[in-house]
Write a protein that binds this DNA or RNA. Sequence first.
DNA 1: AAAACGTGGCG
DNA 2: TCGCCAAGTTT
Length: 293
Amino acid sequence: MPAPTRTTIAPTLVAWFTENARDLPWRRPGFGAWGVLVSEFMLQQTPVNRVIPLLEAWLDRWPTPAALAAAPPGDAVRHWDNLGYPRRALWLHRAAVEITARHGGVVPRSVDDLLALTGVGDYTARAVAVFAYGDRHPVVDTNTRRVIARAITGDAHPAAAHRRDLDAMADLLPEDDGDAARFNAAAMELGAVVCTARSPRCEVCPIADVCAWRAAGYPDTADTRRKQARYEGSDRHARGAVLAVLRGAATHEASAAEVIADWPDPVQRDRAIDSLVVDGLIEAVDGRLRLPR
DNA sequence: AAAACGTGGCG
DNA sequence: TCGCCAAGTTT
């Protein structure tokens, strides 16, 4: 069984994607580069179904980068709600300010300009250039990484993320811009709905017949990823609890002793508050805590 | 370059 | 119940 190549895997996946793509907001024609950028921020480490409602509310409130840039950063944190990793809200707000100042309020198109925005890395920059503007770049996320690890390399799990992954994807990319964009989306989609981390559905996989992992008998390659730290009782948990109070009770403010007053570890509580202030996610003014203005 | 960074759902 | 997992980026 030959290893899948550009000529075998891409047309098959693109054809499968054409038939099976989920109807997601950011795939609607004319969704716009701002919408795509916001969606990509929200999708960083956060499942699609949790993003959709918050994305739509966000874009109703702030239809342009300039609109968000004009709002206080605390509003961004508040309306990020419970999406998680709230510093993304701060980064997105900062990116909106940068777009307004440096790019006339238009989300930039070049990967370099996108990479220069706060909170935009290798994945997000190329996702915007490809999915919003139709340019030809490799887009590599955790799904694509897993699909390549299995179908091409024959491993159950991808190695640690590496910039070299971009080269591997670039080698598989069709020549045509549109086909390349669809292939990028198709690889992500396959990883998201078929070639999933825990229970791959090989019986419906369009490339099962050329999959190196399947051909090798599904070897259980070692998973090299680091385990996630326990959340319950962690500093992250404490930070999340503080922020949840200040988000919900946004109209009034709280003192350090009042927020999560029943938190079992006051030292940890204070450490959480201090780190949130350092990160700019909250402000302490006259001993009162609040979201930043 | 390893660790930090939220939150909720699913097996 | 509990650990894994989710369209990553930053320091």
